[in-house]
Design a protein around this nucleic acid. Structure first.
Lengths: 332, 332
DNA sequence: TTGTACGCGTTATCAT
DNA sequence: ATGATAACGCGTACAA
């Protein structure tokens, strides 16, 4: 017991929990004792006795490592401020275990809060769970039941509309769209933005120009092959995320298409992938790290209320980047 | 208490902990009760009473999101088998907080084990901490004090030697090397392999051909600019990781150099980045996910002993991939 | 094979 | 402002 060091008994608890009613003198003594003994309160005991675990969980399943990395980084940044730990709880989007994992996170681990990313954010069973539980939940980019939990998001529809308008402004009339997996609301929203921009421009929607993907590189490549194989192929391709855009790009290269001279490619993501492929892609920059930070902040900051926080996106233009012509001439 | 459901008292504990001496009948009854009540033992209570927390931590700081993602995935796969959770504990490699974080992970959170990745694996203070603690530690790719803790690794020296030999066999005589940050033992080891192969081929080591990087895209690009600016530039560049190789590639593109016709680029990583840049790069495939899995396995499987596990690497050749010529001719 | 009593280290409640 | 005491929910040791 740190009582030996200090002079008071478990007033230590008050000090450590930064409670109001403590004399400045006692507080100092306790703090000194804590420092000298390198004392660290046991988390398990605090969890058992109190009602907080000093842990939050991130239930995340996304094919893009960058997304996961940035999301975790943002959450970490916020957690560090409160001395809270993050449990990383990956899940397979088709796994039966998800619900069980979440429940045991709440029941057994007693986490103070849970952050969910798509597609689980919109699973009916998960929504039902959240509805009957009295736990802090924050959903990132949810698609349905927006008032059920707190959430952070960007305007996916607006972002996709902006990008599509941008491509239209460049003169493109046939724009291919590679969607994400249908279970991701973000994918649906981005497709909606795409359609909306076409509508505004009075361009007929051609279902052939929309190909399903899986938010990963390979599916982006496959979808692009399909789009380029069309009788009347698109002059631009807008992928619902950067990994798929990178896949699209690889196909362009493989086929010897100059980008963007012969084929424009646009992406959507946190601008890591889009920046380091060649040529760097025009993309919608989604500040994933900020999404994570804000999600954690909703969980940790004071009173918890069901609040919706929108984070701004940015359209990053990179058309000016030279086409591969220079590379070609050098090679030829 | 689930006593109401079952008939016995806290023999439940025995059942849940899969102890030997329990009658098959009682076990069945208890299990039924557990299932019907959806009972989940409280982790905090178990941690407090017992001596396990059912949590392990991954202290990881790596500039490559793919590395982190794959590492976590491997650990997750193994943890899932034992119902153990993973705490993701990122750190800044220059942070004073690291030691404090690790200690509180052990003292306060009472994790059952800790997995460390470079560069923290070789920090003297961290090593000292591990030496005086009686906790399960596993280091991934450590560089020093190999007998201090259990570890998993690939033969970095051998891998770099193999790649360098490969480049030599292709006819290259001036091979640039982009190292990682000096605090990463893996970087030093890979450089050593590079030098070793040169020695074997009786090629004088030219310090100008070695440029420091930071294991990230930007530093790879910078180092490449420097290498190409040399009076006698290299015909091939071997980067100590794939992110830097991608950076090198971007410079080649920007300068209109055909890859690999005019400049060969080789990488080192888990083959995600190297596969989706253009052209896909020859690389040393390090099975990062396997490293994570094995690290977790060392922690969780039975008796813990200080064991060293080596995982095989693979040299993935991709020179046959066409140069950019086709793209160029199409563009021109 | 199963049940009982105690303790893990902290917070919460109530006195003081 | 501070101290005593009872939980918190489970393992462990020992008894039955």
């Amino acid at each position: 017991m740190s009582r030996l060091a200090g002079v008071s008994i478990k007033t230590v608890s008050r000090v450590l929990n930064r409670e109001k009613r403590v004399a400045e003198a006692t507080r100092a003594k306790v703090n000194a004792a804590v420092a000298s003994l390198n004392y660290r309160p046991n988390v398990a005991a605090r969890t058992l006795a109190g009602h907080r675990s000093f842990q939050i969980a991130l239930a995340c399943d996304n094919p893009s490592p960058y997304y996961v990395y940035e999301m975790q980084s943002g959450i970490r940044d916020r957690c560090q401020m409160d001395g809270v730990r993050m449990i990383a709880q990956p899940y397979d989007h088709d796994s039966e275990r998800l619900l069980d994992d979440i429940e045991s996170l709440v029941d057994a681990s007693g986490v103070d809060g849970l952050i969910l990313t798509p597609p689980a954010t919109d699973y009916p069973e998960v929504l039902a769970l959240m509805a009957r539980r009295n736990v802090r939940f924050v959903r990132v980019s949810p698609g349905t039941d927006l008032d059920l939990t707190a959430s952070v998001f960007i305007d996916n529809v607006g972002a996709a509309t902006a990008m599509t308008r941008h491509l239209l402004a460049l003169g493109h009339r046939r724009i291919g769209f590679i969607s994400g997996h249908a279970s991701y609301a973000t994918s649906t929203q981005r497709l909606e933005g795409y359609r909306s921009a076409l509508d505004d421009a009075d361009i007929a929607f051609d279902p052939l120009l929309v190909r399903p993907g899986d938010y990963d590189f390979a599916s982006g490549a496959d979808a692009t092959e399909a789009l380029l194989a069309l009788r009347d192929p698109p002059s631009a391709i807008f992928a619902a995320n950067d990994d798929m855009a990178a896949g699209a790009l690889s196909v362009a290269h493989r086929r010897g298409l100059s980008v963007p001279a012969q084929l424009s490619i646009a992406g959507f993501g946190d601008d890591a992938v889009s920046r380091f492929v060649w040529p760097p892609l025009t993309t919608i920059r989604q500040p994933t790290r900020t999404l994570g930070y804000q999600a954690a902040d909703l969980l940790l900051a004071g009173e918890f209320k069901i609040e919706r926080r929108e984070v701004p996106f940015e359209l990053v233009r990179r058309e000016s980047t030279g086409p591969l012509r220079s590379a070609g001439s050098a090679a030829g």
